[in-house]
């Protein structure tokens, strides 16, 4: 690990801790009430769901429309586990084990679906994953163990802001490291040109299924968090529209940009809440803004790049030195270049 990387890690860790303590402080002093806290937890859940989808859609380049299905599998698997074992172990331990179970269950389903589905490309993959997602929903709706259409109740409400925050941070860290490794490069090469990737020896099927399984697993973790925060599961919340909402976050943030996903998840979770004042017009405005954002930034907020403090620092330095140079010359149009 060289110095620059160490510095970057240190800065990022400091920022994450700062955000965490900042939010904790605001919650303790009542600046953020229960309602705000709920929104923040939803942002964190959306960060997990969207960043995992970004691995498949942004980094691997495979469009899928069934991510809510994996979320549902994770939600139900983890909830069923914690319902059975609640009270028998400390809450935090129960939460962690439930989430791991949810993640593994979703991952297995991801592999089972991924192997046949990932042979398809482009829109066909999108459609088949949509189909699988809906099948998962209908199955959950109609079997006994999940509580069927009545929903699943009695889930312990053990997810909190703290656990959601650190799990989201962990997911981002894992995804960042994965995408910046030989596996990550193989995944990116498939997005860039699958035929060429195979021609330089990349096992394309293996990496596609790997990416898909990891993404499904994290979606399952996100679903598990959701289940243990809401404490009630209704199968119809995991429909096609939920998958679409997650995809919207990914595209708006920028395909292949984890930082973009975090920003977009925040914006798109807060937006409908912030528009509550418009009552009936709320969702109308939301969809209108979505269209406008796509029209003006079709490549997403961050494109495929990652935000980093180093680049920001470099860039501001660059801008400053450019401004200074301009000042020295007295500016092109005679202005001082300050404004």
């Amino acid at each position: 690990m060289n110095n620059k990387m160490l510095k970057n890690y240190a800065i990022n860790l400091a920022v994450v801790i700062l955000i965490f303590t900042g939010l904790m402080g605001m919650m303790a002093t009542g600046m953020l009430n229960k309602y705000h806290q709920g929104i923040i937890i939803f942002i964190l859940i959306n960060v997990i769901l969207a960043s995992s989808l970004n691995l498949v859609t942004g980094f691997l380049g495979q469009l899928t429309l069934g991510h809510a299905g994996f979320m549902a599998v994770g939600a139900y698997a983890s909830a069923l586990f914690s319902v059975a074992l609640k009270g028998q172990m400390p809450n935090l331990l129960l939460l962690i084990i439930s989430l791991i179970i949810g993640g593994i269950a979703a991952s297995i389903v991801g592999i089972v679906i991924g192997i046949p589905a990932l042979r398809l490309r482009g829109d066909y993959l999108a459609i088949i994953t949509l189909g699988f997602g809906e099948v998962i929903r209908v199955v959950i709706n109609n079997i006994k163990i999940t509580g069927g259409a009545q929903g699943l109740t009695g889930i312990p409400r053990i997810a909190s802001f703290q656990s959601a925050f650190w799990i989201a941070a962990l997911v981002i860290l894992v995804l960042y490291r994965l995408t910046h490794s030989k596996q990550g490069r193989a995944i990116l090469s498939i997005r860039e040109d699958e035929v060429a990737a195979e021609a330089v020896g990349v096992r394309t099927t293996y990496y596609k299924v790997l990416g898909f399984a990891i993404a499904a697993g994290f979606a399952g973790v996100g679903g598990g968090l959701y289940a243990h925060y809401i404490a009630f599961l209704d199968p119809n919340t995991f429909g096609f529209m939920r998958s679409v909402e997650i995809l919207v976050i990914v595209v708006l943030g920028g395909m292949g940009s984890l930082t973009g996903t975090i920003v977009a998840a925040t914006v798109l979770t807060i937006l409908p809440e912030a528009l509550r004042g418009f009552s009936d017009f709320r969702m109308l405005l939301y969809s209108f803004m979505l269209i406008v954002m796509m029209l003006f930034r079709p490549q997403g907020l961050f494109g495929t790049g990652e935000f980093s403090w180093q680049t920001l620092y470099d860039r501001t330095k660059l801008v400053h030195s450019a401004l200074r140079k301009r000042e020295k010359r007295g500016g092109i149009d005679g202005s001082t270049g300050s404004k």
Binding site: A186, L188, A197
Partner: peptide, 29 residues
């Protein structure tokens, strides 16, 4: 020509070189 267009020249080479890199997904993470 089929390059990985949005990746750097070095990354293009590294992808082809990956058979000589013996570490698992877990050690990446």
């Amino acid at each position: 020509i089929r390059l990985f267009k949005e990746l750097t020249v070095l990354e293009n080479i590294k992808i082809a070189y990956h058979h000589d890199l013996h570490y698992s997904t877990l050690s990446s993470i």
